[in-house]
Simulated assay, not measured.
Amino acid sequence: MAVTIKDIAKLANVSITTVSRVINNKTEGVSEETRNRILQLVKELGYQPNAIARGLVTKKTKTVGLIIPDISNPFFPDIARGVEDSAHIYGYNVFLCNTDDNLEKESEYINALKEKYVDGIIFTSSSIPKHEHITDLIKSGIPVVIMDRRIDSEDIYGVFLDNYEGGYIATKYLIDLGHKRIGCITGPLYISNAIERLEGYKRALVDNEIEVDNRLIFEGDYKINSGIIGAEKLLEHEVTAIFASNDLMAYGAYKAIRSYGYKIPDDISVVGFDDIQLSQILEPQLTTIRQPAYDMGLTAARMLIKLIEGKKMNKKIANFRPQLIIRQSTKDIV
């Protein structure tokens, strides 16, 4: 049976309150002899304080929640690694919750994290166009940091990429290679980052006097299969290049392009978005837009911990810039 704080108090011949004060480093009014006796018993008996019970007293559990929409997408584990590494430095543990892009599951995780008295939550919200549960959580006073997918609220603290610029530079690069019939496979168009990447694509076309053709735009869902279907639709309209709004859909485009007997990049150029590690292993290696997922995770955790600890924040939003990574999946046709 696990040793309890009552056992320690009985053996040390002191009150439970005294043991609690020593364990929580609040030793004012406790003699050095008593303190040492209690700590020796804690060591000898292998006593482990109950984190939740301690949290009820200290109002801090040194835990945070991280809610992500799709653990199978390698972009999100990179975020999680950054969050965990940063949290560890500051003495916090991380509860990881994967929602599978399911709003009901996301809401259940919020309730579970609240029941565990986490000190704060980092969200990369699900692909669902409703965020009332998140705004309600923010209003309840629990520190929250939003990542990757913006929501409409003036109260949020967040870490984001300039997705508009990313969509623009991906498309502009293909235009500079001589492409005019450039297809775009978007993410779900009720998610802010998908909309922003599409707007960047359109602006690059307009700035270079290329008409926006809605037949060359296919709404995907950030998963491989929608990249396959989207590329098949776009190939029917004789595109010479495809901008996929994430790398997973670019992988799907690869499969479709090859199934039609075309070669990459000789016949069709492809640009992705995210720069997950598999994009360097793919053959040919994928030209893509890099967003620094690990660094964004580090920043989100630092921001959340500052909120938890009541430290001054210079700004509510941290913005990252995208970077074009040129590899082997694009070709000059000028």
Results as ranks from 00 to 15, higher is better:
I317P: 01
V94G: 09
A2Q: 06
L286V: 02
R215H: 15
T99L: 07
S86H: 08
S259D: 01
I228R: 00
Y173D: 01
L205S: 05
I276A: 13
L304R: 14
E84R: 06
K315Y: 15
G178R: 05
D148F: 06
Y190H: 13
M313Y: 04
Y251R: 08
V57R: 07
P188D: 10
Y254N: 05
A244K: 00
I185K: 03
Q40D: 12
D275A: 11
M303P: 13
N93T: 09
F243C: 06
E199W: 14
A293R: 14
L161H: 04
G272D: 05
L161N: 08
E219F: 11
Y168H: 02
P143S: 15
I182T: 08
K255Y: 05
E106A: 07
D266V: 12
G178C: 10
M313W: 11
I276H: 08
N193V: 03
H237M: 11
T330K: 02
K223A: 13
L174V: 00
G183F: 01
N36D: 10
I146C: 13
V271I: 05
Y262F: 15
R327P: 15
N50S: 08
N163L: 06
K255Q: 10
R150K: 14
A231D: 04
E115W: 06
A318E: 15
S125C: 09
I289L: 01
G252H: 03
D176T: 09
S245A: 04
K255M: 08
K315E: 15
G297P: 14
E104L: 12
D85Q: 07
G310V: 08
I128Y: 08
F218Q: 12
A204V: 07
D213F: 13
Y262E: 09
S279N: 06
L189K: 04
I146W: 07
F160P: 01
E238I: 09
N214P: 13
K10C: 07
Y222V: 06
P129S: 08
G310L: 04
Y251F: 13
I289G: 02
Q291D: 03
I138V: 15
D207L: 02
D148S: 11
P143G: 14
I110L: 05
V14G: 02
P77N: 12
E209T: 08
K202P: 00
S107W: 01
I281K: 00
R215V: 14
S269N: 02
E32P: 03
L286S: 02
I326V: 14
K6I: 14
V22P: 00
V271E: 03
T63M: 14
T288D: 10
I326G: 10
R258H: 05
G82F: 04
Y222R: 06
Q40N: 08
R21W: 05
I169M: 01
N319R: 10
V334F: 04
E236T: 11
K255C: 04
Y92G: 10
E132I: 03
K233D: 04
E309N: 12
Y157W: 08
I242T: 03
A293H: 09
K233I: 02
R258M: 08
A2F: 06
T27K: 11
S279G: 06
Y157K: 07
R37F: 06
T34E: 05
H133F: 12
N163W: 00
I333K: 03
L56E: 09
Q40W: 10
I142G: 14
A318S: 15
A87C: 15
I146D: 08
K306Q: 15
K180V: 12
D247N: 00
R203W: 04
V14E: 00
G141D: 13
I217Y: 12
S72W: 02
K59Y: 05
K315C: 11
